[in-house]
Design a protein around this nucleic acid. Structure first.
Lengths: 95, 95
DNA sequence: TAGATATTTAGAAAATTGTCTAAATATCTA
DNA sequence: TAGATATTTAGACAATTTTCTAAATATCTA
C-alpha cells in the first residue's frame, strides 16, 4: 500500500492516470500532454508501473501504457475503511 | 486535491489516520504510538491538518485531533472516476 | 546493414520532505 | 506567580524526489 500512495502524490502522475482512464496511450503520446522531457515522463511511468497502477506492453516501436484497476480497487477499500463504509465489505484490518 | 494526496504519501501519517479512525486522540497519545519525537509527530499532524484530513481542538492543556471525513469522501469520488464507477454519481453526461 | 524513430537508463543538480534538538507558547495547579 | 505538563515553532541536516542532458537500447524500414 505504500508505493501506490507515493505514486499518487505527484500531480504529473495523477494527470497521466486521468489520460489513461480515457484510453491506452504510448509513452510518446503521454509525453505530448506535458511540458516536460520524455525521460522525465518515462521516469514517472516507471514509478506508476512499480506501484502496479499501470502496465505496459510493447507493440513494435511503441510501448503502450494502460490502467491497472485492481490496485485502485484496493485503495478504494482502504478509504472505505477510514470512513467506516466497511464492517462487512471485507474483513481485513490494519495494513 | 494535491495536499491530501501528498499528506497520504507518508506511512506515519497514514498510521495516524488509522489511529484516529478508532477515536479522537491528543497529540501526546498519538506520539506514544511512534518511535519518533513529539515535534516530528506535531509536524505530521500539521500536514494532515493543512490537507484538511484532520481537525484539532484544544481542551485545556491537550489538543485533540479527529478525522475529517469530507475530504476522504472527495478522494473516494476521485478513485471512482478512475475505475468508472461514476457516470451518474456526479454529472450524467451522455450515455 | 544504416539510419530513423520510440523509449529507457545513467548520472547529476536542485527542490522538497522527514527528522532531530533547542526554544517558545499555552494551560493548569499549588 | 512559579513550576509542571502538553504541544508547537524554528532552524538545521540528511534523505528522497523531481527534473534535466547525454547516452544506450529496441524496433522498423529502405
Amino acid at each position: 500500500m505504500n508505493l501506490p500512495f507515493k505514486a499518487l502524490a505527484d500531480p504529473t502522475r495523477r494527470k497521466i492516470i486521468m489520460l489513461l482512464k480515457e484510453r491506452d496511450l504510448t509513452a510518446g503520446e503521454i509525453a505530448e500532454h506535458f511540458n516536460m522531457t520524455k525521460p522525465s515522463i518515462s521516469h514517472h511511468l516507471s514509478i506508476l508501473k512499480q506501484a502496479d497502477l499501470v502496465s505496459d506492453e510493447r507493440k513494435g516501436q511503441n510501448i503502450y501504457y494502460s490502467l491497472n484497476t485492481t490496485v485502485f480497487q484496493e485503495l478504494i477499500n482502504w478509504f472505505f475503511e477510514i470512513i467506516d463504509y466497511n464492517e462487512g465489505v471485507k474483513n481485513n484490518e490494519d495494513k
